[in-house]
């Protein structure tokens, strides 16, 4: 199937969905239950004109990116270390298998108690959620490097440090990349939960407070924007992979 054909199909499918939504909303005729697409657009325009939507989007995005990058910066070296050292794996393993079952959302309140209602608690929460995903992916990527690759490098004269920097790190880039992509998706999950519980700004805050004003259209506008933002950041990440990391992701980027 050609690129243009599949792009056209995607466009048609979105348009078809909007049509069904419009017809469904007209049939139900209850804007407090299901607003029409046009109502959502005018509602969004209201929020845009008073500046709420843009600033909320910016603040949510800032929290996501800051937490995601912070978490990755911690997770990548940790994952490389856990992947290469049996001792490190033994030290870190029990914590991984414990915290795996403690979702970030369970920690929202605790983080607010510890780090306050400001930006710190939200950024750290996203960093927490990111760290585990990226670290586990990185470590399993290191573990999946064929032994022959390591042995080959050593037989070609690479010392231990060179083997790490020239083989282990580049060979793990696909798993790091995919881990960060998964973590980005989970960051959106976490930020909404955090902003619903404790924030005076952000898309999650709009979704939560719209109910007080019976503005289901605002709620829809924020939800759609959230999805669009996620879609867009994922696209940007994919593009970055294709452009900047192409040689490392030759086999991994085919999804």
């Amino acid at each position: 199937m050609g690129r243009n054909v599949s792009a056209g199909l995607s466009l048609a499918s979105v348009f078809g969905f909007m049509l069904i939504w419009q017809l469904g909303a007209m049939w139900l005729n209850d804007p407090l239950f299901l607003p029409r697409p046009w109502d959502v657009i005018t509602g969004a325009a209201e929020l845009v004109s008073d500046g709420t939507l843009i600033s909320s989007m910016a603040i949510s995005m800032m929290r996501i990116l800051a937490g995601w990058l912070l978490g990755s910066i911690v997770a990548i070296p940790l994952g490389l270390w856990v992947g290469t050292s049996h001792a490190a794996r033994a030290i870190v393993d029990p914590f991984i298998h414990f915290f795996r079952f403690v979702p970030a959302i369970a920690l929202v309140t605790l983080f607010i108690v510890w780090f306050g209602v400001g930006e710190m608690s939200k950024i750290l929460l996203i960093a927490y959620a990111t760290t585990f995903i990226v670290m586990v992916n990185t470590a399993s990527g290191v573990g999946a490097i064929p032994q022959e690759k390591i042995d080959a490098a050593r037989c070609l004269g690479a010392n231990r440090r060179q083997t790490f920097t020239q083989i282990v790190v580049p060979a793990s880039i696909p798993s790091i990349y995919i881990g960060m992509r998964l973590a980005l998706a989970s960051s959106f999950l976490v930020i909404v939960a955090a902003e619903m519980l404790a924030a005076s700004s952000g898309l999650g805050y709009i979704i939560w407070t719209s109910r007080l004003y019976f503005r289901i259209d605002w709620m829809f506008a924020a939800i759609i924007l959230l999805g669009a933002l996620g879609f867009l950041t994922d696209r940007v990440w994919k593009m970055l992979g294709r452009e900047a990391l192409n040689r490392y992701l030759r086999d991994a980027a085919k999804y």
Partner: peptide
């Protein structure tokens, strides 16, 4: 331990090559 005095050609076709390096870079690794 391993060193460049004794080179090794492996049976595995996929494993030993460095996928992120070109043919020239692979051969120039040593």
């Amino acid at each position: 331990g391993p060193d460049r005095q004794r080179g090794m050609v492996f049976q595995s076709v996929e494993g030993p090559l460095f996928d992120w390096l070109t043919v020239e870079e692979n051969v120039g690794f040593g």
